[in-house]
Structures are given as structure tokens and as C-alpha cells.
Amino acid sequence: MIEVKNLRKSYAGCQAVRDISFRVAKGEIVGLLGPNGAGKSTTMRILTGYLPATAGTVRVAGRDLLNESLAVRRRVGYMPENVPLYPDMRVAEFLAYRAALKGVPRRRVKARVGEVMARCGVAEVARHIIGALSRGYRQRVGLADALVHEPELLILDEPTAGLDPNQIRAVRELIRQLGRRHTILLSTHILSEVEMVCRRAIIINRGKIEASDTLENLAKRVKSGALFIEVRAADGEALARELRELPGVSTVRVSGGRDGWVALECAARPGGEVREQVDQFIKQRNLPLREFRCGKASLEDVFIELIQE
């Protein structure tokens, strides 16, 4: 659905996007993840035809963005960051205007507007003036606008920014539902959002792609989650030294201890598995054990590791 090759974008004196390439297949929900200022919005603005690229080629829905800009724009639904809307218009009026502007046939406009309003839960404010709507409703009106011309691809720039927890949950649920029919590319700097909504993430930092993979594979790329154990032992440090000798273990840290109990945190080498060995180690020494817990490698760890490099 999206094919980006060697995309570059520089503004006066600054390179916002440096040579990125990626693909998004039809039907995927992909998260574009990165800290603020990483180039997410710039990339999305280029994909929607709002900004021209400095170099590189972009194909959306099989069409070249440069030569068939109008055809591409007809197939893309875009919700910009902060959801700019015309505050003086009424919701239904605004959506009808946007539908007509994006080429929905005249006799279909009314039906389409009704459909997207029901879908996005804004039917009850159809007659309200947009300027008087709450942030949550504005966000949903923005989504309805992006959907109104039945685009194949949805590009959503930080769709949950500035919402309260309930609204965030509602919008995420809505995006997940939309994912059944549309290809979605969304940007965010909230990691849990990607974990909840997307199947694949593209991590971008300082205008470059740091990683692009499914969530499971991304989690595998860093050291698997640390293993926490708590055993009764006289000397924690001595135990830690012994544990470090085990094959596959990279670091061991004494993370606490009280009343004769010692808490240890063992980390495995990337892709490694040490639980069995540690278990045998404890059994051989007959150490009383009261905690054996495996920390899950979260996307957060992947993210921080990649960004800090």
C-alpha cells in the first residue's frame, strides 16, 4: 500500500528526514514511533501529498505521489496533528463539505456523512458548531473527516494526543475496528499505544529508521527480560559471582536483600534463555527460594535502547 524509497526532506538548513525506506502492506496497522521531533509528522505530510519530498520516491496504492498526486490524495484519509477544523462550521455541514471536496459523488454525500458520523460516534453532535466541541469530539470529527471518502489508506498523526484516558480508549478501539477495512499508518510517541493497536512498528529517530519489525520480533532483538529471583543466602555478592559463570548469563546484580534473603536480577545475552540453568543452580545448592519471576521485555526497553544508541 505504501512504498517509500530513500526518502529525504530538508527544510532550510535542517534535515528532517534522512534517507528512509519502508513498506506497508495492504491491511496492516503500522505504528510510526519516535520521540518528538524525530520526523514522524514530516514523513506523514509527505505521504499525504501536503509536502513535497526533497528526494526519493513514494508510491501509495500503486501510484507515484509525484506524478499522480491528486489520485493518491483521493485514496488517502489524513488526520493532521492537533486536528485542525473550521470552528465556524457545524459537524454535519463540515463533513458534507469535506466529502464533496474529496470527490464523493453528490448523491452519495449525505449517506456517507451519516455513515461516518455513526461510525465515529459524532451523530449526537451533528448540529453542533465545531468550535464548541470538546477535544474528544473534535478528534472523532477529524477521524470522520479522514474516513468520509472511503480511503484505502488512513494516515493518523498522533490520534490520541491530548485526550483523557476514557477518550483514548475509545479512539484506540475505533482505530482497531477501522483496521479491519483500511490500511492504517499512525504516529505516536506513546509506546503502549503501539502495543495495543498495531501489529508492526517503525521506530524512527532523528530522521532515520532505527528498526522496523513486528512487535514480537522487536522484543526479541534486545536482551530478553531480566530474571528476578529471591533466595535465602548469606552472601549475595558471592552468589552473584557464581551466577555470572553460567553460560548465557550476561549480567547479575544484587538488587536488594533483607532478613537473610537476597534479591538478584539476572540478565541473559540477547536471544538467550537462562531460566532452566538458574533453576538447576538453585536446586543444586538447595537454596530456599521465594521468588522466581521473569520480567517481560517491553517495547519500551527496545525503544529506549534504540534511541540511546
Binding site: R45, A71, R73, P80, P84, L85, K102, D145
Partner: peptide, 14 residues
């Protein structure tokens, strides 16, 4: 100022 130019220019219009 309001950013609506982005809505306008990303629609299929010349």
C-alpha cells in the same frame, strides 16, 4: 494560523 491549510492542501484539489 489554525492549521486548516493542511486539511485543505492534502485534499485532492489544485
Amino acid at each position: 494560523r489554525s492549521g486548516t491549510i493542511e486539511l485543505l492542501m492534502s485534499a485532492p484539489v489544485l
